[in-house]
């Protein structure tokens, strides 16, 4: 599928660019429409387990709704308190609702864009691309890769430690002390393993210099530019629409 084969650096930079551009705007409609477009693009051009996508999107939506409510509840005094909207049984200033909606949809737009990236990108290819296209030092890239590999190992370790502590009869102490008792064996084990991994990498001739060849060469092809062009076009179209229907506004450290 197109999104999965897209050059990861191009994909990441496009998304980052769009996020910055979206952050400059402040109205409820543009991010809402953009969210829908992003989801559509993800589903049309991405190959992934559809069920998991929803599984991830739901908490994001809850988060956005939570944000909506807190922003309204703790809002600054509005400029036009007279204009209100009835939210079921609660009268709130119109202005506050608009601000809250803008913030919440922006969060959703960011979230769907990051999901687009996460669901269609292979972590290893991303790091390889960062090295090959964006000149990330290999020492850092492979160091991160080695660290990332620890993730599943750490989960098992964590469970082991929890069970082991239960046998020792933990639980009489304050929460902070318990955290510390957990953290020390977990981190100590991880650090020792990290050191061993580094030694193993060096013994395979890894020096961290840029002089190396690659088993997988990640390139930027012509069709990769379709993604920034297409997403940029959607974004501009939405801005034109917002200008046309007059709800466009810049973000001014709201409000």
């Amino acid at each position: 599928m197109y999104l999965n084969n897209l050059n990861p650096s191009v994909k990441a930079l496009t998304i980052l660019g769009l996020v910055v551009a979206l952050a400059l705007l402040f109205d409820p409609v543009t991010p809402a429409l953009f969210t829908l477009c992003t989801i559509a693009v993800t589903f049309l051009f991405g190959d992934f387990r559809r069920k998991y996508y929803l599984f991830y999107l739901i908490p994001f939506t809850i988060f956005a709704i939570g944000m909506l409510w807190t922003t309204i509840a703790f809002a600054d005094a509005p400029k036009n308190p007279a204009e209100t909207i009835g939210l079921i049984w609660w009268e709130v200033p119109r202005e506050d609702v608009l601000v809250a909606l803008s913030l919440s949809f922006r969060v959703l737009a960011f979230a769907t864009m990051s999901l687009l990236f996460i669901f269609t990108t292979n972590m290893v290819e991303f790091l390889l691309s960062l090295m090959q296209q964006l000149r990330l030092p290999p020492k850092l890239a492979y160091g991160i890769m080695a660290g990332y590999r620890f993730l599943p190992m750490l989960t098992t370790e964590f469970r082991q430690i929890r069970a082991a502590h239960r046998v020792r009869g933990m639980g009489r102490e304050s929460r902070w002390k318990r955290y510390r008792r957990f953290a020390v064996p977990l981190l100590a084990g991880a650090i020792r393993k990290a050191e061993r991994t580094a030694v193993a990498m060096e013994s395979k001739g890894f020096t961290g210099t840029r002089e190396r060849t690659f088993y997988r060469n990640i390139r930027v092809r012509k069709k990769d530019w379709l993604f920034p062009a297409g997403m940029g076009a959607i974004f501009l179209l939405l801005i034109l629409l917002s200008l046309r229907f007059d709800y466009f506004s810049w973000y001014q450290g709201q409000l």
Binding site: V124, R149, R196, T197, A200, F206, R212, T213, Y215
Partner: peptide, 28 residues
Amino acid sequence: FQDPETQFCMLTVEDEVAFGLENICVPS
């Protein structure tokens, strides 16, 4: 090395074997 868990830095078998070759600049 002794510990099977800590001598690798890549996610798949082929990438791991290739890692050493990349380091000594074997042509792709």
